[in-house]
Design a protein around this nucleic acid. Structure first.
Length: 608
RNA sequence: GCCGGCGUAGCUCAGGGGUAGAGCAGCUGAUUCGUAAUCAGCAGGCCGUGGGUUCGAUUCCCACCGCCGGCUCCA
């Protein structure tokens, strides 16, 4: 598990119910942190029993348990060791061995841990300033540790040794590689089981599997990190774009489109060359250097600079379905979540300084509105401050960060601060949503930028005729459309609402005798704007239904003798319910209405 | 990029130093059937790529590519 809940490309489950101390079956109040930390020590002991020469680095708790970074000189821990380690841990836990704290001077500790190279490094590095250090011992195993721990190993609750992964001393790939052994630990067995069930659920929802099963997209060796959209996936993608386009239009945004490859000079001027180069693709033509755009702002700025702007034009809201390329290390690619090229619903708002707050305020409303439509009701807001790698004066950073905070405060929107997580050109607000299995995802963002307007000498004519510098706001509601679709696929496990479903209706003839009628119905549905497919495969109805059901098709139009004779249709909903013998017009109108309102409902009033 | 694992038919997966198997999907035929898999037959693979070891490699070794899980990074 990663330490931070908003990270994507992976996810972190938050177990709210475990936020604080909790009584165990022993009736004691136990601190979960101490419990997990203690479990790490017990695991270390179990590992040492298996590999007496194991070298231990750090073993902290995580959000779902703990891990320990280990090196086995001349060997490695294998998957087959995990059950052994777990057994060892169970034995130690059963022994109810007390955790005994002691202190010694740093010099003594250096001698004491002489054979543990990482403990020595820790004492010489991180702990160099300490006079004394604390140790914890259980059952003959002593570790350097500041604690606290539970009283004895019997208080550790339910745990399991989960998996093994690579890591480095101090997390730096230049340092020595270590093995990280992850463990899960919860107060009770029920909670451990619940977590494991949830992980199983998450695996089943994996958008890469959904995409394959529903024939939405694929990946190929020939283009690692680049998605290939299939017809059904692209229908989804285009439907999403048309949705967000409508939302933008109704908020006064004008759409533009700018080139994907632009002169390197532009990227020097924008600061991307200095601050973002390692993520950029470069090319050349006629011996002139170009870069493939990793962001859309410079293109938008060129559009703004074309012509003179009056204060009356502001705020000028431009937006672009910008397809950007960003080089990513091969090891981080992950389905639609982490690509090397993706499409942003990327807006750039040029406004007067006094308009910033109002723009932010209405953007917050916009974001909440859209997320709700997708069933993301639980939104967390973060303000990210100046990162190390950045440009601009401190005062400007401070005032723009304050502008963000004050806009949120005036709206009464609660937020948390993420120090040093802003963009290189300005601070930002990030919007996180929680999906239905409690995973957090970062989606939208709005960023204040005083820097680009300066670099590109943007201006507008003020009321008094003087030239003023506008503020640039960068904003995205969905972020990466590809990634958003991946998240949403996992949210609904491929069962898209009618308005998004690539195939809205599957027309199933009961026997071949209805195939002609089925073709008529197909034409009628298509004419009515319903995305429909015909199944005249000669399979039995059961099989046709099964196929449509596995494809998560919202509506199955069943056409048998009865319907053909009465010239009506029967609808089986994805939910299993039926709306029998209605007119094609009623069906088209109903699906149309539900789609127009982006409803999640399959049918307005379910038959009883 | 780094650490570890994996790569066999369109998909899911068995197998294993003597040259490959299942289920589903596909094709053909029969069946014409009312709410989650009709039956039978056929076809389908340079066992990721390139080297090496060997009489012989898909199997063992090495390198590369890709994928998966992590580290780091990130939309």
């Amino acid at each position: 598990m990663r330490r931070d809940i908003w990270q994507w490309g992976s996810f972190t489950l938050q177990y709210i119910s475990f936020a604080g101390p909790k009584p165990t079956k022993e009736g004691r109040r136990m601190d979960l942190h101490a419990m997990r930390h203690s479990a790490a020590h017990v695991m270390a002991q179990a590992i040492r029993e298996l590999y007496p020469n194991a070298q231990f680095a750090f073993g902290p708790e995580t959000e779902t348990g703990f891990y320990y970074d280990v090196k086995i000189p001349g060997g490695a821990i294998g998957n087959e060791d995990l059950p052994k380690i777990e057994k060892g841990m169970q034995r130690i836990a059963k022994g109810r061995h007390p955790f005994v704290r002691s202190e010694m001077s740093r010099d003594e500790a250096l001698k004491y841990f002489g054979s543990q190279e990482f403990k020595v490094k820790a004492l010489e590095g991180l702990l160099a300033g300490e006079k004394t250090v604390s140790l914890y011992e259980q059952n003959g195993f002593t570790d350097l540790c500041k604690g606290p721990h539970v009283e004895h190993t019997g208080q550790i609750g339910a745990f399991s040794v989960d998996r093994i992964a690579g890591s480095y001393w101090l997390g730096d790939s230049k340092n020595e590689p270590l093995q990280r052994v992850y463990g899960l630990c919860f107060p009770t067995m029920d909670e451990l089981k619940e977590y494991k069930t949830m992980m199983e659920e998450a695996r089943k929802r994996d958008h890469r599997e959904v995409g394959k099963k529903l024939d939405l997209f694929s990946f190929h060796e020939e283009g690692p990190g680049f998605v290939f959209w299939h017809p059904k996936g692209l229908t989804l993608f285009n439907t999403l774009i048309s949705f967000i386009r409508d939302e933008n239009d109704s908020r006064g945004s004008r759409e533009i489109k700018t080139p994907e490859i632009l002169s390197v000079d532009l990227w020097h001027r924008s600061g991307h060359y200095d601050n973002f180069r390692e993520h950029m693709y470069f090319t050349s033509a006629e011996e002139k250097p170009y870069a493939v755009k990793p962001m859309n702002c410079p293109g938008s700025i060129l559009v703004y600079k074309e012509g003179l702007h009056s204060f009356r034009d502001l705020p000028l809201r431009l937006m672009e379905m910008g397809h950007v390329h960003r080089f990513e290390l091969s090891g981080v690619l992950h389905g639609l979540f982490r690509l090397r090229a993706f499409t942003q619903d990327d807006g750039h708002i040029y406004c007067a300084p006094e308009q910033v707050e109002g723009e932010i305020s209405s953007f917050v409303d916009y974001v909440f509105h859209v997320y709700k439509i997708f069933g993301f009701e639980d939104v967390t807001v973060f303000v990210s401050t100046r990162p190390e790698h950045s440009m601009g004066a401190d005062e400007v950073w401070e005032s723009s960060t304050n502008a963000l905070k004050s806009a949120l405060e005036k709206k009464g929107v609660a937020y948390k601060v993420k120090e040093g997580e802003g963009a290189f050109y300005g601070p930002k607000i990030e919007f996180n949503v929680k999906d239905c299995i409690k995973r957090n995802w970062q989606l939208g963002t709005i960023q204040v930028d005083f820097s680009m307007p300066e670099r590109f000498e943007l201006d507008y004519v003020h009321t008094d005729g003087s030239r003023r510098r506008p503020v640039l706001l960068h904003r995205a509601v969905l972020g990466s459309l590809e990634r958003f679709l991946g998240i949403y696929m996992e949210q609904v496990v491929g069962a898209f609402p009618p308005w998004l479903a690539p195939v809205q209706a599957a027309i199933l003839s009961v026997t071949d005798n209805q195939n002609e009628y089925a073709k008529e119905i197909l034409a009628a549905l298509k004419a009515g704007g319903v995305r429909a497919e015909l199944d005249v495969s000669g399979e039995r109805l059961n099989k046709k239904i099964r196929n449509a059901q596995l494809a998560k098709t919202p509506y199955m139009i069943i056409l048998g003798e009865k319907e053909a004779a009465a010239r009506n249709i029967s609808v089986r909903l994805r939910s299993g319910e039926n709306v029998n013998e209605i007119s094609t017009e009623t069906f088209v109108r109903t699906v149309g209405d539900l789609s127009a309102s982006r409803s999640n409902v399959l049918w307005p009033v379910l038959p009883s």
